[in-house]
């Protein structure tokens, strides 16, 4: 069995993976062209479009935006979890969106740049299997509607029931924000090669992706002081994703996209989280074998 497949199998998940050497294009894939649900990974193309609009003068990243307490997309981190009115610059909202996957910050930014603008950008980059059609609030609303519960607060509980999970449209890549592992690594490689936008914008995006706090998924495969890991996670019931870039001290840099779906409906899935790091390291090691 493919060793990457074995990692997924041992963790009780189905996995989709693509890894590519950013500089020479060599690649490793597993179901790399199948459609996958992005969950919060959609925040990466959103962040790119935000910077592209700033480059064209359509917005100013230092512009301060009010985020009232009364109108927050729910979530466990950042503004989504804070209680009082706040005012932040667009780029600091982007920081919260990337560092802690703040849902409120993401929805404020997506409303600002527009979904169609993000999709037009993706078309221009040749990433036609990648679509952003929902914001975080849409995804969360579909969850509690499909789960048949009265409100957001009951969703977490309901979604540990396998029968409920079976009817969640949010887990269908045909419905919501979607991509393929290969398109996600393509996007990251363009950001790392300064091709997705101007060099300063790409550097700002790389900075934010390196500031992501989560250590449990992609970064867990590379517990080494001299290896840099940048990434963006995505999570929905049974789905655990992360896309990112791993940079080795010898200059090797690899874009990797890992999407998993578990059999278990538990909210806590440490094996699935760790499998993302383990599979990524396995794939990158294969790319390094012939150096």
């Amino acid at each position: 069995m493919n060793p990457v497949e074995r990692v997924f199998r041992n963790a009780g998940v189905t996995g989709w993976l693509h890894a590519v050497d950013i500089d020479d294009g060599r690649e490793v894939g597993l179901r790399a062209d199948e459609p996958v649900v992005l969950a919060s990974v959609f925040k990466v193309p959103l962040l790119l479009e935000l910077h592209r609009q700033a480059e064209r003068g359509l917005l100013d990243l230092t512009e301060r935006v009010g985020v009232p307490a009364a109108d927050r997309t729910s979530g466990g981190t950042g503004l989504a979890a804070m209680l009082d009115d706040a005012t932040l610059s667009l780029r600091d909202l982007a920081y919260l969106m990337m560092a802690v996957s703040d849902n409120t910050a993401a929805d404020v930014l997506l409303a600002r740049v527009g979904r169609e603008a993000v999709n037009t950008l993706l078309d221009g980059l040749g990433l036609t299997a990648t679509r952003v059609v929902q914001d975080c609030r849409d995804m969360l609303t579909s969850l509690w509607v499909d789960a048949g519960v009265a409100d957001q607060s009951a969703v977490t509980q309901a979604c540990t029931d396998p029968e409920v999970v079976a009817r969640l449209r949010a887990l269908d890549p045909a419905v919501g924000n979607r991509s393929t592992p290969r398109e996600m690594t393509g996007l990251l490689a363009m950001i790392w090669r300064d091709e997705a936008a101007g060099a300063a914008s790409c550097a700002a995006i790389r900075r934010l992706m390196a500031l992501q706090v989560w250590p449990h998924r992609l970064a867990s495969g590379f517990p080494f002081d001299d290896v840099a890991v940048s990434g963006k996670t995505g999570t929905l019931p049974t789905l655990r994703n992360e896309v990112g870039v791993v940079e080795y001290p010898d200059g090797g840099r690899y874009a990797v996209a890992v999407f998993t779906r578990s059999l278990s409906t538990a909210q806590n899935q440490p094996r699935a989280d760790a499998a993302i790091g383990a599979a990524a390291r396995m794939a990158i090691d294969q790319l390094r074998t012939h150096i």
Binding site: A99, A210, L211, Q212, V213, W214, P215, A219, D225, D226, V227, A228, V229, E247, P249
Partner: peptide, 15 residues
Amino acid sequence: PAPRVTPRPATGLLA
């Protein structure tokens, strides 16, 4: 080559 330590938010000082 100078040994490098890449900062990570989750393991940074006082994190």
